[in-house]
Every structure is written in C-alpha cells, then in structure tokens.
Design a protein around this nucleic acid. Structure first.
Length: 708
DNA sequence: CATAGCCGCCTTTTT
DNA sequence: GGCGGCTATG
C-alpha cells in the first residue's frame, strides 16, 4: 500500500508524506496539494504501524475535518485518528480536564449574540455607558487580548491610562458573568486550554503521550493561543507537521499571526522544510494573474507559482453598469457554461461581504439556476432554533442565564419583565443563581401567588424534561418542542416555516444520535456550538456555490467568478487603507479568490453600486491594475452586452449643477465640500469631501444634495 | 402583561 | 435596509 500511495505523489510531496518523525514544515502555494499531503501522511503513519489513536490532525474548519477523515479512510487508514478544528479539540481537552482548568464540564459555549448580551451587562455593571464604550468594540478588544493569552490579571498589570483602565474593568466583569453562567466564549476555549497546558505539565505530557503525531493545516492562520497549544502538545516528541502558505493568511483581524509560520524554523531548529511550488490546480494564465497581484505585497517572501497545466482560456475582467447588471451577466454566463456541458457544482461566485449575495441570488432565481449560499450561521441563528436549543442548554447547564431568560417566557406564559426583575433582585441579594431562585419562588414575597404558581409550573416542566437527558437526544428535543408549548404557539401563529425548521433540527439531531458513539445532550450542544453553515456546504449537488472570499479558502472550482472589484469593497473600506498590513491582507484575500479557479476566471466590477440604500458611483479597485490585464481591452469585448454610458449623450438641464468648492448637505453624510463635478446629464456625478474626511462619489440623481 | 409600532443604531471577514 | 430596544396602547 505504501507503494500505491507513493505513486500518486510528486517527489517533494513524497518527502513530506514519508518524513518519519521530528518537526516538519510544509510551505506550499495554492493548489500544490498541501491538504493532500496531510491526509496521505495520516495514512502513511498508520501504515508504518502508528496507532490511529496517537494521531491528531487539526484543520481550519469542521468541513475540512470531515473531508479529511473520509479521504484518509478511503486511503486505507482505519478510523480513530483525531481530526478536528482547534476549537473542537479544545472542547474535548477542557471537558476531560475540567477540574484542572477550573471549569465545569457542562459549560455552555457562547456565540456572538450570547457574548453581546454578556458584554452589555458587563458595561452596565461597570456603570459605564455604551456610547463611549460600544459593546461590539469592547468585545473585539477582549477577543484580541484572549487570543494573545492576556487574561484579566495580566491585563490589569498593563493599565496605562483611562481607556485601558475602563477596558480592564469591563473585561473583569464580562469574565465574571461568563463564569457565573458556566459559559465559555470561543476565545476562552483556546485561552483556557493554553493555560491548562502551561500550568499543568502532567496534563501536557499525558496529552503528548496520547497525541504522538500532531499535524496542523493552514498554519499561517493560527493565532498566538493556538500556536502555544500546538507547541505545548508537541513539546515532548517534536512530531509536529505544519502546512501553510503565508500568502494565504486572511484572518489577521481575528488574531491570526503570520509570524507563527515564519518563525517555525526558529521554534524547531531541527525542522525539515519542504516546499511545494508546483501548482496542479490552475492554468498558467490564472497563475500569472495571481503572481502579478501578490508581488505587490512588500511584506512577503518571494515565491513563484509553477504551473503544471496547459494554457487554456483567458482571464476575463468586466465592467458593468450596476450590481444588478453584474449579477445578471454572471448568471447568464453560468447558464451558458452549463449549457456547454460544464457542471454547476464546479462553479462558484465569490464576494467580499455577505450582503452582496442578495442581488446574485435574485439573478440566479430569475434565470432558474440552482444555487446554494454558503453562509456563516443562518440556520442555527433562527429564532425558533435558538429557542429549542435554549431549552436543551438549560437542562445540562442550569446556570446558563442567557438561555434561561430566552425561554422563561417563550412561548408567553405570563412571566413578564416585572416578575423577572423581582426574581433577579432576589437572586442578587441571596447570591444564588436565577435558576435556584426560581425553584424557591414561593419564598419571594414581592410576587403574587398567581405569579409564584406560574414560575413553579415552568420549573416543574424543566424538571420533567431533565428526567430524559441521558441517551438519545432527538426524542428529548421532540418532547421539548411539544410540551414547552412552542409547537402549539408556532402552529397557532401560522408560522409553518418555523415549524419546518424545528423539524429539520430534530432530524439533524436524530442523525447525530445515529452517528455518535455515545449520544449525549451535552456533547451534542457543545458540538453544534462550533458548527457553522459553511460546514453544511454540500459539494456533491448540481448547484452553483455563492460565498464570501473567506469561505472560499481551501476550495477549488473549474469556473470561478469574483464580483465587486471596487475601491471600498475589495479592498474593503473598513480595512483602513492607511494601514499597509490591512491592505496587504485584502490583497491576499483577492489572491485566495483568484487561485480557487482551475480554468475559468471571471473578475468584474460595477460602475454604480447601491450601498445602504444609496446608489453610488464606484471607483475600480486598485487591485485591478495590479493583476496585469489591460482593462480597456477586456471592457470593450463585452461592451456590446452592457453598453457604457455615453458621456456626451442626453444632457439634462433639470439636473442641478455643482462646482468645486460648493458647500453641500447630504441626508446621511452631513455637510461636505464639492471637490469635483462630472457633468454627464442624467448621470452626473459629484465628488464630495465630507466632514469626517471621507470622500464620496455620488450620483446627483440619487444623492439628493442641497447647496448651503 | 402582551403587542404593535416606532426610532435610532450600525453595517467585513468567522471558529 | 435590518435589527434591537424602547414606548405607547390595549
């Protein structure tokens, strides 16, 4: 079998796959088969006598983990190797060593909206106001601190001014609330694991013995906490294999630190380094475009993409009138390709922000093309789904106040704000959890007898559910749905969609029950907390995939479309173009998009785009000039399809004229000064510099500007 | 206590 | 344009 395996590999891939032990770094460009190397390496290790149980592979997404598992098994590797994301691995470790980590194994995992509630409470508890300390900002700052393994105590030691002092206070309260609720946020999973490994050498060595070979994919996107975890896990044996590509690092905003991969050889001086430079995915034309683009990044190691495929079609760059035209053209082109025999499941459309999917979706519907949107969470964020899950969560973790408050009056059972406030007040004075307080509602004098009875009935219902928490999860979920009154409520409200969604959830739980070795409610809840819809993306159906550029990472398609190549969108304005590092990351993001395409690559932008209800004149992305394709040439090729507005035609006297220097007022942007007026009749554009320093190109027709 | 309707806020990317 | 939070009303 070793031979069969080896035959499918290039010499450098073979070197990485059969590298016996010790640290190994695989630096590999896009399409060079680095994930393949990891998968084959798992098979080869098992083939050489290593027990699957002793192998731990870490992927970037759950989906990647599932695929790797299946492929490894297909290669003859028996099941049993641990293959998961960093976060899932941490959940496992934390559950096993909960007492050492200072937590309860029944912890809830909080997502963004749960976190948001906690941080708002924390800011309020600190008697600070949310205008000066926006919860989202605070959360972002805390997240960054946790990613750098700076806990509350460490951060307190670094207070150097008013802001950090306030932040430290908020951080402390936020952490206190999570602790009270027996909840961990995503960053806690990593931070607590890193601290566990750091503080308990025995745990570290136990895990080192368990996972004798560590393999990490997409190493360029690890953050400091993940880096420390990996280092600790491999510290005993040094059997760490990391693969990655610095040019594809696109998660800096989330704490990813490119230095982790750049410093690998310093961390592991005996490291073997294998470079995979051949590209088996894309045609030379696509690689040339990618190469041209990425060369503009100054902060990088030179690397060439070596094509192995023959020259095929040209890369196409198109300009369209507006986003609807752009979407229409994409849909029509997809249709044409499909009619010519191309497969829909081998096509994808990439965009910078999720909001851009809408117009594409409409175009696909109109053209009757099957598609699937690969989005962040969506399904698990639906109200009815979160309600059911909240019922289930409270059964394993009664301290989860976020879940408790969500369901205490859903569906309405006459427990209103006043009642909750009174119960809370009692909980605070008696220093017990909300759940405990509810159990004693009979002792709360501020409540009427009728209210006390309602609370007792609610608690009683939960206690009944609790009797069913062991074993399979689906029957319990079904019972909760019916007996909580939610099913009845949805039915009487005529919300059939919601009911169907819950049924879909119950079906998926039944699937979990079947496939899990030992189905358990806690395990199920902790698993799905880390699950996203990106993982549900089905690669085996005849549908075009629509997704963000971030979600495109690790995938490949015969034909790829990248839309919205406009200043402010790609690079995104929030990425603050003053910061060169941010701009370089946006460039890498585009690079990732380009290198997903095997044969057909279509890049486009719209001259006008509606942003937050405003039709705005766009500026083509500077990246378009960096990929080395003559824009004028490609534009003209498609101009018959999408006529460019003739500047000389139809000059309307009725349009207000502006001249440079005029002071104007805009409904949303406020006061500004006109920089330039481009007279194009009906389509006249005015460039205005607004008070906040932002310069916008606005269409006079839509901007509704008044001269002051 | 429940509900509807309104106002004001924000709006990148995700485990 | 979408959502959460608040208020006014039943």
């Amino acid at each position: 079998m070793r031979n069969t395996l080896a035959q499918e590999l290039t010499p450098s891939q073979r070197k990485a796959v059969f590298h016996a032990e010790g640290p190994l770094l695989v630096i590999a460009g896009p399409g060079s088969g680095k994930t393949r190397v990891i998968t084959y390496r798992i098979a080869a290790l098992i083939d050489s006598g290593i027990k699957p149980y002793n192998i731990c592979a870490i992927t970037f997404t759950n989906k990647a983990a599932n695929e790797m598992r299946q492929r490894a098994i297909a290669l003859g590797a028996s099941a049993g190797a641990h293959i998961s994301t960093f976060h899932s691995l941490c959940v496992r470790i934390l559950r096993q060593y909960a007492d050492r980590a200072g937590i309860k194994p029944s912890f809830s995992i909080y997502n963004e909206s749960d976190q948001s509630r906690c941080i708002k409470q924390a800011v309020k508890d600190c008697e600070l106001d949310t205008t000066n300390f926006p919860p989202a900002r605070m959360l972002e700052a805390i997240s960054m601190l946790k990613n750098k393994l700076i806990d509350v105590d460490l951060f307190k030691a670094q207070i150097d001014g008013f802001f950090t002092q306030a932040l430290a206070k908020i951080y402390e309260h936020y952490q206190y609330i999570l602790d009270e609720y027996n909840a961990l946020d995503f960053d806690d999973l990593l931070m607590k694991t890193a601290f566990l490994l750091q503080n308990f050498p025995d745990v570290c060595s136990e895990l080192g013995n368990r996972f004798k070979f560590l393999l990490i994919d997409e190493y360029q996107d690890t953050n400091h906490a993940q880096y420390k975890i990996a280092k600790a896990l491999a510290s005993q044996h040094g059997n760490i294999c990391a693969t990655g590509d610095p040019d594809q690092s696109i998660y800096r905003w989330r704490g990813a630190d490119i230095r982790n991969i750049l410093a690998f050889e310093n961390d592991w001086p005996q490291a073997t380094v294998v470079k995979l430079e051949e590209n088996f995915r894309s045609t030379p034309n696509i690689l040339e475009v990618a190469d041209n683009l990425i060369a503009f990044n100054e902060n990088r190691k030179q690397k060439k993409l070596v094509p192995t495929k023959p020259h095929a079609r040209d890369v196409i760059v198109d300009a369209f009138e507006d986003e609807a035209e752009e979407a229409k053209a994409v849909a029509q082109r997809v249709k044409k390709l499909s009619e010519e025999g191309a497969s829909l499941m081998d096509m994808a459309v990439f965009y910078r922000v999720n909001a851009m999917s809408r117009v594409l979706e409409e175009a696909f519907i109109r053209n009757e093309i099957p598609y699937q949107i690969v989005r962040g969470v969506e399904f698990y964020n639906r109200k009815e789904i979160r309600d059911i899950l909240a019922y289930l969560k409270i059964l394993v973790n009664p301290n989860d106040e976020i879940a408790l408050l969500r369901i205490i009056n859903t569906p309405s059972r006459g427990i209103g704000k006043t009642t909750i406030d009174r119960v809370r007040a009692y909980a605070v004075t008696n220093r017990i959890s909300l759940f405990e307080t509810l159990k004693r509602s009979g002792h709360i004098d501020s409540l009427s007898k009728a209210t006390q009875a309602k609370l007792a009935a609610f608690i009683n219902m939960l206690e009944q559910f609790k009797k069913d928490v062991t074993g399979k999860v689906a029957p319990l979920a079904e019972r909760v749905f019916i007996e909580s009154g939610l099913e009845e409520f949805l039915r009487s409200a005529g919300d059939q969609n919601a009911s169907e969604n819950v049924n879909e959830l119950i079906n998926s739980i039944a699937q979990y029950d079947q496939q899990a070795e030992e189905p358990a409610l806690l395990d199920y809840l902790q698993q799905i907390a880390l699950f996203s819809d990106t993982d549900a993306y089905d690669t085996a159906v005849e549908r075009v995939a629509l997704m963000t550029l971030h979600a495109a990472k690790g995938l490949e398609f015969e034909n790829a479309f990248i839309v919205g190549l406009e200043e402010g969108l790609l690079p995104h304005e929030k990425s603050n173009t003053e910061d060169k590092d941010d701009l370089e990351e946006e460039r890498r993001l585009f690079f990732v998009g380009i290198t997903r395409a095997k044969v057909g690559l279509h890049i486009s932008y719209a001259r006008y785009r509606t942003i937050r209800g405003q039709m705005l004149r766009t500026i083509p992305s500077p990246f378009l000039f960096e990929i080395g394709i003559d824009l004028a040439e490609t534009n003209s090729s498609s101009s018959s399809l999408h006529p460019v507005i003739d500047a000389q035609a139809g000059i309307y006297n009725s349009m207000p004229a502006f001249s440079a220097g005029d002071l104007v007022r805009h409904k949303t942007f406020g006061k500004g000064r006109v920089q330039e007026f481009v007279d194009m009749g009906e389509n006249s554009v005015v460039v205005v510099k607004f008070g906040n320093g932002q310069i916008k190109s606005l269409m006079v027709r839509y901007a509704n500007l008044s001269i002051i």
